[in-house]
Simulated assay, not measured.
Amino acid sequence: MTMTEQSPSAVDSGTSATEAFRVARRESTTTDISPQRVGDVVGSVLAGIHDAIRSREVTYDEFQAAKAWLIEVGEGGEWPLFLDVFVEHTVEEVAARAQRGTKGSILGPYYLPGQVRLPSTSKLPMRPDEKGTPLVFAGRVRDVDGNPVVGAELDIWHADDDGYYSGFAPHLPDGILRGVVEADTDGRFEIGTVQPAPYRIPTDGPTGALIEAAGWHPWRPAHLHLVVRAPGFRSITTQLYFSGGDWLDSDVAQATKPELVLAPQSQGDGTLRSEYDFVLEPAG
């Protein structure tokens, strides 16, 4: 199987990401947003677009090209991909201003709910011949006062050694390199997996066309995705990266932070080990 045959298309990724978002949205407890707030935010967004048109002297041809592109994004189901890559990092930055505990990062478009539940010391589901450098990721979940958080769980997922996510690449079995790990009563966990590879966001659709037209690159550095949660605490959505990794300083999603970079240590047997403690704050 060639890399081209393996690669998930933008349509595949867009469809999966859209469905996952809709499921999460149905389960959300978010309250209704007031008309005043909608008017304020949408008005500011439109004002920014108007200012860009004026300052860049956008032509009718450019406007029509933008309209066609927006239509293609919708028809291809790529809004989750586009918004998660190019917009979410700023929303997360604003949210972080009022938060304590572990630094957050973007959720991204490749989250899938309802994954297999695993004990505190466990391995993520893998293929028998899973490629990649073995990685042990361990640590502890504490509260802001340093106490272990009872009932904490880590929803973890990441790309494989070729940079593909299960559920978004047709050649991958469902559920691999994904799981919900239940920390022990002392808040400890130890997860066996493989080190993920950097990946490029799908470029065969309108989001890729925009990236090419703008002269940008489509790469994200290798990372682990995590949602860490516990009853009575604010959940943390974050990503952990690897020191020395490609694209770490030029992430297309602009989601990297120094506090979120791991430095795995060799265990002498071909395995890497990295430890990271999470700090949860009480729910507001």
Rank of each mutant, 00 (worst) to 15 (best):
W247E: 13
E78V: 07
L240T: 14
R178E: 08
P113Q: 10
G205A: 09
G104T: 14
W216G: 01
D204K: 05
L81Q: 14
L280I: 11
G187C: 09
G104N: 12
R142T: 13
S274R: 01
Q36C: 03
Y241W: 15
V141I: 14
A169M: 07
N147F: 05
A197R: 13
Q254Y: 13
G39H: 08
E190C: 01
V42N: 09
P282T: 04
G132A: 05
D269I: 01
V279M: 00
Q195N: 00
Q254I: 14
E19D: 12
V228G: 03
G268L: 12
P202Y: 08
K257D: 14
A159R: 12
P231R: 08
D84W: 03
L260S: 14
D155S: 05
T207F: 03
L260F: 05
G208P: 00
D246F: 11
S105V: 09
W216R: 04
F168P: 04
T30F: 04
F278A: 03
R97L: 14
G39A: 14
A214F: 09
D246P: 07
Q36D: 13
L280P: 08
G146V: 11
V261Q: 05
G232L: 12
E92T: 13
L210Y: 04
R37A: 15
L172D: 07
G163F: 08
R200Y: 00
V144H: 02
S274K: 01
L46W: 10
L70W: 07
S235T: 12
E275T: 14
G232R: 03
P196I: 08
R200W: 00
S105D: 08
L83Q: 15
R97Q: 13
P221G: 10
G104D: 10
R220S: 07
S235C: 08
T30Q: 11
R100L: 10
D143I: 07
S28W: 11
P231H: 13
R117M: 01
Q36N: 06
T207C: 11
E5N: 06
S7V: 00
V38A: 04
I211F: 02
T2F: 04
V41E: 10
H50L: 13
T59S: 15
F168R: 04
A213P: 05
P148W: 02
V150Y: 01
G163S: 06
V227I: 15
S13G: 10
L210A: 09
T185F: 02
